[in-house]
Structure formats: C-alpha cells, structure tokens
Nucleic acid binder design. Sequence first.
DNA 1: TAGGTTTATGCAAACGTTTGTCTTTTTAGT
DNA 2: ACTAAAAAGACAAACGTTTGCATAAACCTA
Lengths: 330, 330
Amino acid sequence: MAKELNISVSTVSRALNNHTSISESTRKRVWQLAKEVNYQPNHLAAALRKGRSNLLGVMVPHIEGHFFSSVMHGIETVASKSGFNIMICQSNENVANERKNIESLMNAQVEGILVSLARNTHDFKHFDKVDNLAIPLVFFDRVLEGLNVSSVIIDDYLGAYQAVTHLIEQGCQRIAHFAGPQHLNIYKNRHRGYLDALRAHGLPLDEQLVYTCDMRTEDGTEGMEKLLALDVPPDAVFSSSDFSIVGAMQVLKARQIRVPQDIALVGFSNETFTSLTEPRLTSVDQRCEQMGQSAVKLFLEMLEDRSGSFSPRRIVLQPELLVRESSLRT
Amino acid sequence: MAKELNISVSTVSRALNNHTSISESTRKRVWQLAKEVNYQPNHLAAALRKGRSNLLGVMVPHIEGHFFSSVMHGIETVASKSGFNIMICQSNENVANERKNIESLMNAQVEGILVSLARNTHDFKHFDKVDNLAIPLVFFDRVLEGLNVSSVIIDDYLGAYQAVTHLIEQGCQRIAHFAGPQHLNIYKNRHRGYLDALRAHGLPLDEQLVYTCDMRTEDGTEGMEKLLALDVPPDAVFSSSDFSIVGAMQVLKARQIRVPQDIALVGFSNETFTSLTEPRLTSVDQRCEQMGQSAVKLFLEMLEDRSGSFSPRRIVLQPELLVRESSLRT
DNA sequence: TAGGTTTATGCAAACGTTTGTCTTTTTAGT
DNA sequence: ACTAAAAAGACAAACGTTTGCATAAACCTA
C-alpha cells in the first residue's frame, strides 16, 4: 500500500474514494502516487469489510448454444453497468452439480443468484439456504411452478397462440403441431397455446395432427413424414422448436412440396439458422437478451428492498413472432 | 461464526479444513454444529488471508454466438473441476472496455486471466499491469502476433489447407475463396492455407476467384453471383466463414445449380446450422471446447510454475474437417 | 515420578480495506 | 485576539479467515 511513502493511513482510502473531508491537495497527491506505484485496490478486502462483494452469481444448465449464451449476454451487460461482476456456473442438467454450485456461489459471498434450473430439478430444497440468508434469488426460463420466488419467463402460451393465429390468418385450416416433452412447462404451455388458438378461431382439433417428440431435427423429419401419410395432410405445421421444423422443411423440399404455399411452417426460438434457410423460417423470438436484462434488474430491485422483505415478482416477457417467408402466403 | 457455541476459536478453522492436529471428536462436533447453524464459510476472508482467490477471469468480445459460448463451456468445465470460480467480462469489441475489464478483474484479485481480444486491439499496453504482477495471462483465438505470451489458437492455415485439399481430391479444379478482412489473422491464415493448397497441387491461382468481404450471409450471396458471372465460373467455393457459404448456397439453389455436383462448398467454423442445410455443409471445426480447456490447463501450469518465471507456451490446436454432402462428389 | 514426546488446542497477528470517533489544524466571526 | 465552528486528518477497530508459535494435556518410557 502507498501509505508509507506519504504520511497517512486511512486517509488514503478516503482520498481514493474521493471522500469530501479530504483536501484537494492531498487527494491529488494520493492519486498521483497511486498511478506511479501501479496501486491495485484489493476488492476482496473491501468486500470483506463492507459486506458487499459486488458479485452476482449465475447458474445455467450449460452456457453453449443460442439461448443461454444470449441470456448471459444480457445479464453481463446490465450487471456490469451496475458495477457487478458476474460469476458463472453450469449445472450440466444435473441436480447434484446444482447443489454444489449453489454452495460455491454462497461461499463466494455473491449478493444474488440468477438460476435457470436443470431439467430434472423438481424440488427447492437446495435453495433454502439462499432463501434463509435472504440472498436475492431470481429464476429465469426454467423455473419451478407454483413457488413463491422471483422469476422471469416468456409467455410460451402467448407465443404459440400468436404463431397459430398468424397461420390461420394466412388461410391455413389444418394446422399440425410438433409438441415437445409434455412434462416440461415450456412445451406444455406452447401446446396449450396451439390448442386455444385453434379453438378461438373455430377450427376443429384433430389429434392426428399433434406429434409429440424430442424436438430434434430428425424428429421433425419423422413427424413430417407421418403427417404427410395422413389421409388429409395438414396445410401448416407449428413446431415448439426450430430444430424440428427445419427437419420438416427438409422433407418437404425433398418431396417438392412448396413452402409456404402447400404447407406453411412456423418454429419456436428464433435460432440463428432460421434466417438462413430457404425460405427463411418464421419463428417465435424468446427475447433471450431481454430475459437476462430483466433478471438482473429484478435482482437489483430486490437488493434495494432488502430490508422490507421483498415480495417476489414474476416477470412475463412477451415473445415476438417474426414472420418470414416460410409462413407468408402473400 | 460457530465459535462461541462451542469452546474454541481457530480450532474451528482447522476442524473444518480437516487439519491433522485436531482430535476426531472435536472435528465431528464442529462439522455437526456447522450443519445445524447452516454455517457459511466466507471465501472472501479466506482468500484475503491466503492471498488466493480461486478466481479465474475470462474476457471475450461477446458471449453470445456459437464460438465463444462453446469455448466458455470448455473453460468453465475444467476450471470448476480444479476448484476455480470463473468471472466473465465482455469487451464488446471495444478496447476501452477491455481496459476497464482488466482493471476490474485485477481488483477482484483473480489468479489468472484468459482473454480473447477485441477486433481493434493492436497493442499490449493495458496488459502490462497483468504482466508486471506476474498474473498468469493466456490469450485464446484472438491473439496478438509476435508477442511473447501464452496462447492457444487453432491452426487456421491448416484448416484451410485441408479443406481445399479435400476439394481437390473430390475432383474440383477451379476453387474459389471467400476471404475475410485480411487485417485479421484468422482470415489471413485461412487465405494462405487456400493459396498453398492450390500451389501444392499444381493448380493455377486465379485472382478473380478470390472474393474478399465481411463474411456475412449477404456477402456470400453477392460473392457467389460475382463468381457465376465470370467467363469460367468455379467448380467449388471454400469460404472462411459458414455464414457466407450459406449465402452462396442460397444463390446456387435459386439458380438450380447443383451442390456439390456443379459446385462444391466448404465453410469454416462448423456452426450449428451447417448440419441443417440441404445438403449439409462441409465445414472446418474449430475445437471450441478444446480451446477453452487448453487455455485453462495452460493457466494452471503457469500457476504451478509461478516461482520460476514460466516461459510462455503457445498451443496450436488441429482443426478438424467435417466432410458432409456439400462437398462429397462420391 | 521426572523427563520427554506426542497430541490437541488456544493466542494473536495478519491479509487490505472501511469507517466511527476523536484530535488537530484552519477559518471565520465578533 | 479569543472563541466557535468547520475542515482535514489520524487512530483503531472491524470484516472472517488462516497460521506460526506457544501452551496445556495426555501418553510413554525408563
């Protein structure tokens, strides 16, 4: 520390923090010296003393891939703007890791934790500690239903509803659906949105048109083939995932079935490649980045409100239907 | 702290660390109590005292997107395995942010820093501090040439060379190249690989076949149209980016030119969508994940070797050519 | 039982800040 | 010039650990 060189102790601290009760002259001198000796403030020590680490913990199932990396981008951006450093962990879709990571984040004295749950996480036990210590906790995207905790999600139901409504408006009458695993909320809600949109517009529901699968590309091809084998094939497909819809598109091209004239297609997630297919794929954007931003903002609010027990808030983002050529029957 | 409840002080510390000179009985008692009171060790305090934060700083231009998020995945995986928490920053391709982030990471007392540089970073000044404090510094992917510092990159030259050689082996004789901005090393090296592969196989170099652009999809379509307008169009295109090659593919499809029979295509990066196009795109995989892992391993080595000034190492990963239908003229 | 080990624990300093309080110096008001 | 008030700075405690050293208890061995 630069103390000895000058003549002072804690004055240095105040000087560096531009405290009011330090004369301009010494303030200058301290800063000056700081530059010269390449003074490195020790954030750890400050954090320890102040009880504020300026650390925000984030845990996701995995970082790679379009969705989570975009959310992370949003998180980092607004967090750093508020002076927070972010620490990241991956659960690798594994509850045990989730437990360990929470432990680790708590030890690091993070001031808050943003979490997107692993697939097979069904209880809240390992978050009790966080709760007990009143550390702001915000779930995003993968949340636990019916839990009184802050969270930010997108309205999957609405996204699906809009997508299907759009198809109906384009004149489609027989709309199929690729549904994901129904024990996952996101897929369940998209399915509901699909059903309700049909109902709202007086279209009949044909169970044959709903193909439930794991949403991979090859599931999409298989699903499409099944649909084409029906007595009366659909004139549109709404998929809960972009991956499976692209599989469907491949089948249609191979069979020379025109998109969107013969069959219109809409996916979900607005993956990078949806703008690269031919025709480009209509898809529902999940506002990844905004989700990250909202999560951090929610965390910041909770931090403010620390004293009076903050009543958990639930932010529901509006998805955006991005209409592209795969569903535009102009 | 749990001290008062029992009868001890620093014994608790040793007990929790399973220090040898603590009786089994008290060790048990301490752990027991720790569970009961939900004791949270304060990593900050320990870090301060020990001078070891167990923090690893990572700075990338941006997190979202295929490449960096995959590298991050690799980094996080092996770092956490070694007990390191990782702190991430984004420079947003901006040198000023880069400076700020380095500062921030240093303050946080990270034990090492992994960096992928912003596009417009051309000097090393803001890393001097890191160097002076002998904090392990590892560059990955975006590095500064001719600098005596540890780094891990992939052999772009080799990747391009392999790709072009593959095309030649498939019988292509007139191979075009979409080249990226030549002031960026990665693109320059890929260009060199292209040139050398042609030369090595006795093919003539036609300047008309090299289209330099920004590598976006639309650049690819434009480039492809230019190439098709030539008196003698190419029979293959090797692009330094998957995005531009997909643009080219769109043009070819629209014109009913067959891929790969009439024109074969090879891209670079193995983006997610390369397996989703029709036909699927041959591409050069950049070993993103391995790059992250290697960077961390290098950091760990440097940490070991702290005392004896570690002589910087440079790891060059071998890219992998993934041959798919866009270039397979069976 | 004294002397010597071993084993188990306590003491206190230290890590680098921040901050409440107390002291000194300066300024100003009459 | 004397006092009150304001300004600038110093002291020391505190944050929660770790760790070298000292101490106390227990166990041997002769």
